[in-house]
Amino acid sequence: MTASKLLSTDVVAPRDRAPQWCEWISRHFCGLQSDLYGDTHFDGHLASSQAGDVILTRLEANRHRVVRTASMVRTSDGPYLKIVAPWQGSAVVHQAGREACARDGAWVIYDTTGTYEIGNPERVDHLIVMVPKDDVAERGQRFDGVMARRLGASGISRVALETMRNTYLELPNMSEAAAVGAGELIKQLVRLSLMELTGQETSLTQREALRDRIRAHVQQNLRDPQLSADSIAKALNCSRRHLYNAFAGEGETIAAFIQRLRLQACIRDLQQQGPHARPITDIAMSWGFGNPSHFSRVFRDHTGKSPSEFRGA
């Protein structure tokens, strides 16, 4: 078994922890851009091992977000399918216009050969697994349509989840040959999980298709202050009940989803510095917040700071 790699901000001065963590994440995961939601205090720990050519990393850290841009994709080494499987906290994966949220008991898979964003809006303890893409999508198989999908609730994907977790925990006790075999098993179980998902024609996948349409509509109309469940239902020609069913189990309502995306957009704009930085009220209004007081209140609830404090920090 490959020896574990351990990285911890405990050995870094508090003022240097955030930039050091961002550098570690970029280097360890072959190019990622990190955002700590504007927080100034941070601590995190990485422990990584390999089972053959499968890389398993345990990540414990304060809330943060990572982004893989098109330029990072072009300069990366090998293609991987990447899995995030939380023990604690949550992970929200965005890729190819889809979004999937995982908590304990589930996993989400995404493709490092495409752009993506992952939000970890609370302190997390994640298992992150990287499997060579060519070993999973063999013989011309294509799994593009099931990236950024939640798996692990039952069936073979549940077996895959438990196998990934147990492999990581038992790697220190395995011989090199056993570790390689465990890595091959993980790849096989991931392949079977994706094949099962692509072959399903159930009400679950229909709800996921509607969920994708809802998210795409929200992203296209995020600046519209009249955006709501009613307006979405009318635009997509479906009932409010179908909208709510599509978001069942996601951990947030459609209204909360809209508000979260608007806040993320405002955060990005508030991070812009220099002479072209826009006034806070203009930013809020441009992203559909019609009331400055309401915007300040929900922004503080989300970040722990007022908009002006966030911009100053």
Rank of each mutant, 00 (worst) to 15 (best):
L192Y: 15
S306Y: 06
Q264H: 05
M285N: 13
I25G: 09
L194A: 01
R260L: 03
M285P: 06
M164P: 11
A182Y: 01
N120E: 08
P14T: 04
R211I: 02
G140M: 00
Q206F: 15
Q219R: 15
T205Q: 13
E184F: 02
V108T: 13
A179Q: 09
A102S: 11
G78R: 11
G31E: 13
E208V: 00
E208F: 00
M285W: 14
S308F: 10
A47S: 15
R223S: 14
S175R: 14
E170P: 00
D16S: 03
I214Y: 09
C238L: 04
R213V: 02
R65C: 11
W107Y: 14
M72G: 02
A235N: 07
K305N: 05
I214E: 09
V131M: 00
Q50H: 09
P279R: 10
W87A: 06
R211S: 04
Y244F: 13
G199P: 03
A100C: 03
G249R: 00
V180C: 11
L222T: 05
M147E: 01
L243F: 04
K5M: 15
N291I: 05
M174Q: 11
Y116F: 08
F299K: 10
L81Y: 15
G38I: 13
N62Q: 11
N166P: 06
W287T: 01
A255L: 12
L32E: 10
G288D: 12
R215Q: 11
L169A: 12
T202H: 12
R207C: 06
G44Q: 05
V190R: 00
V159G: 10
D39N: 14
D125C: 06
N237W: 03
P172W: 07
I232M: 03
P225F: 07
R278Y: 02
L32K: 08
R278T: 08
T75Q: 14
G105C: 08
T163I: 02
V129M: 00
T198E: 15
T163W: 08
I128G: 03
I186W: 01
T198C: 11
